[in-house]
C-alpha cells in the first residue's frame, strides 16, 4: 500500500520546504518525519519521499543507507543504542551491553523475540562525561549501572516509552571543579600529582626535573 503522511505532518512538510532555497534540502527532515510515523524507511516511504521532492528513488535510497539512524528494515517497538566507544568502554560499556543482551535475550544488532526492543551498538553519542550511557528511542540515559538500567528497561515495558523518558532520561549536566577557584598563574603541579602521573618511570623522574 502506498505510504502517506498524516495531514498534520503534511503541513509540517510544507513549512519545511520554506526553510531552504532548494527543495532537496528538505530530504533529511522529511525522512525523519516519515520514520517517526512509520517506524522505518520502507520501500513505500522511499517512493513517497522521492515523489514529494522530485528525486529518483535511487537518490533517496542512497541517502537513507548512508545514515546510521535511518532504518531500512523494521525495528522493535523501542530501539536501544548502547555506546561502545572508548569513554563509555572505560567506564563499563561492555558490561552494560552484556547485561542488555542477557536481559533482552538477543545479541546486539537484533530484536528481542517479543518485538519490544531492538539492541544496537552505537558509536560515541557525545555524553562521555556521564558514561556509561545508552540511548533509547530519542532520549539519553546516563551514569548507568545495571540496577538503574533494569529499572529503565522495565519502565519501558510497564509504563511505556514516554513515561520512562519522563522518569529516567537525562540532559547535559555541568560539574563544579574539585578545587575552585581558578588561579591567575599556572600553579606548579602538586608533588603528589607528579608522583601519580609518573608511574613506573623509565625515563628520568619528572619530580627531579621540576624547576
Amino acid at each position: 500500500m502506498a505510504f502517506a503522511l498524516t495531514p498534520e505532518r503534511e503541513r509540517e512538510v510544507d513549512e519545511l520546504l520554506t526553510r531552504y532555497p532548494e527543495r532537496r534540502a528538505s530530504l533529511l527532515p522529511l525522512l525523519w518525519l516519515c520514520q517517526r510515523q512509520n517506524g522505518w524507511i520502507s520501500p513505500e516511504v522511499v517512493d513517497y519521499v522521492s515523489q514529494r521532492l522530485d528525486l529518483s528513488t535511487a537518490t533517496v535510497r542512497g541517502v537513507v543507507t548512508f545514515y546510521t539512524m535511518f532504518f531500512d528494515e523494521p525495528v522493535g517497538e523501542n530501539v536501544v543504542w548502547v555506546c561502545r566507544t572508548l569513554s563509555c568502554d572505560l567506564r563499563g560499556g561492555k558490561a552494560i551491553q552484556d547485561h542488555l543482551e542477557n536481559k533482552l535475550g538477543c545479541t546486539a544488532g537484533h530484536t528481542s523475540s517479543d518485538g519490544k526492543f531492538t539492541l544496537l551498538k552505537a558509536e560515541c553519542l557525545a555524553a562521555c562525561g556521564q558514561a556509561p550511557m545508552v540511548q533509547i528511542n530519542d532520549r539519553y540515559y546516563e551514569n548507568l549501572d545495571v540496577e538503574l538500567l533494569d529499572q529503565i528497561i522495565d519502565a519501558h515495558v510497564t509504563k511505556g516509552a514516554e513515561e520512562a523518558a519522563r522518569e529516567f532520561s537525562t540532559h547535559a549536566t555541568f560539574g563544579a571543579p574539585t578545587k575552585a577557584p581558578i588561579s591567575t598563574a599556572p600553579p606548579p603541579p602538586s608533588p603528589e600529582a607528579v608522583r601519580l602521573a609518573s608511574q613506573p618511570p623509565p625515563a628520568p623522574d619528572p619530580v627531579g626535573d621540576e624547576s
Binding site: L86, S87, L90, R91, C128, G129, Q130, A131, A172, T173, F174, G175, P177, T178, K179, I182, P186, P187, P189, S190, A193, V194, L196, A197
Partner: peptide
Amino acid sequence: SGHVRNPGLFEAPVGITMRELIYD
C-alpha cells in the same frame, strides 16, 4: 571522561595544563 573521580565539563581559561584539568 574516563578514569577520573569527577568526570564532566568545566569552564576555564585557555592555557590550563592537562595536569590541572585532571587533578584540580
